[in-house]
């Protein structure tokens, strides 16, 4: 195992543990917004697609890249906006 992989595994494991810990006793009304908020955070996949773009140099690759960019950007942009709308309604009602 390379030192880089070991470092990545360490970060991954600690990330999992933080993820378990950060969700505490959530009221049921916040379940859906929290799910939506977590959904927006994995929109970070757009950063991955951007890094992928630096390695691509074939026509098929460009097509795949465009689709991946479309998907990831939709996830991140829509995810945050829809979460914000949910929470805005939540607050005005309570």
């Amino acid at each position: 195992m390379s030192p880089l992989l070991l470092a990545d595994l360490t970060v991954f494991t600690l990330g999992l543990l933080v993820g378990f810990e950060v969700i505490s006793k959530v009221p049921a009304t916040l379940h859906t917004p929290l799910m939506s908020g977590a959904n927006a955070i994995h929109g970070v996949v757009l950063v991955g697609v951007m890094l992928l773009a630096a390695t691509i140099s074939t026509p098929a690759g460009y097509a795949l890249l465009a689709v991946a960019a479309f998907f990831a950007a939709m996830n991140v942009a829509g995810g945050y906006v829809v979460t914000d709308r949910m929470l805005a309604m939540f607050r005005s009602r309570s």
């Binding site: 970060v11 600690l14 990330g15 543990l17 933080v18 993820g19 378990f20 799910m35 970070v44 996949v45």
Partner: peptide, 27 residues
Amino acid sequence: VAMAGFVLESTPLIIAGALVGAAGAIL
């Protein structure tokens, strides 16, 4: 997404992916 982070060797993807993976499981 965390696995994609391993493929690309990108720390932010690994952190955010693991975070959502675990938080999503608890949720």
